[in-house]
Computed example of a mutant assay.
Amino acid sequence: MAKLFVICGHGAGDPGADGGGYTEAERVRALAARIKALGGSEVELGDTSRNWYRDGGISRLETTAPVVELHMDASGVPGAHGAHVIVKKGFEPDEYDRALADKLAAFMPGRAEKIVHHSELANVNRAARRGINYRLVENGFIDSEEDREKFNGHLDELARIYLEVFGITASSATSEPEAGASGSGSTGFEGGTYRCTVDTLNVRDEPGLSGSVVASYHKNQTVVLDSWYKVADGYVWGRYTGATSGKLRYVAVGRATGKPEADDYLVRVE
Rank of each mutant, 00 (worst) to 15 (best):
I58F: 13
R54A: 13
A122P: 01
G76K: 03
F141T: 02
G56Q: 06
F141K: 06
S175P: 01
D94I: 12
L136N: 00
W52Q: 09
E138A: 07
E176W: 12
F151T: 05
E164W: 00
V67Y: 07
Y53A: 05
E95V: 14
F107T: 10
T48E: 13
A101I: 04
P66C: 10
I161F: 02
L61M: 10
P78H: 01
A65I: 12
Y162V: 04
H84G: 02
I86R: 05
R50D: 03
I168Y: 01
H84I: 00
S144V: 05
I58H: 09
V77R: 13
A101H: 02
G82Y: 05
R50W: 06
A128V: 08
N123A: 07
P78R: 05
T64E: 14
H84T: 04
P66A: 10
K114R: 13
T174H: 13
K89A: 13
E146W: 05
A112P: 01
E164S: 15
E95P: 00
P78T: 02
A127F: 09
N123C: 07
G167I: 08
H118A: 06
H81W: 00
S119H: 07
G140Q: 08
H117K: 08
P177Y: 07
F141H: 13
G167D: 12
R54W: 06
G110V: 04
I115V: 13
E92L: 11
K114Q: 09
L155G: 05
F151M: 04
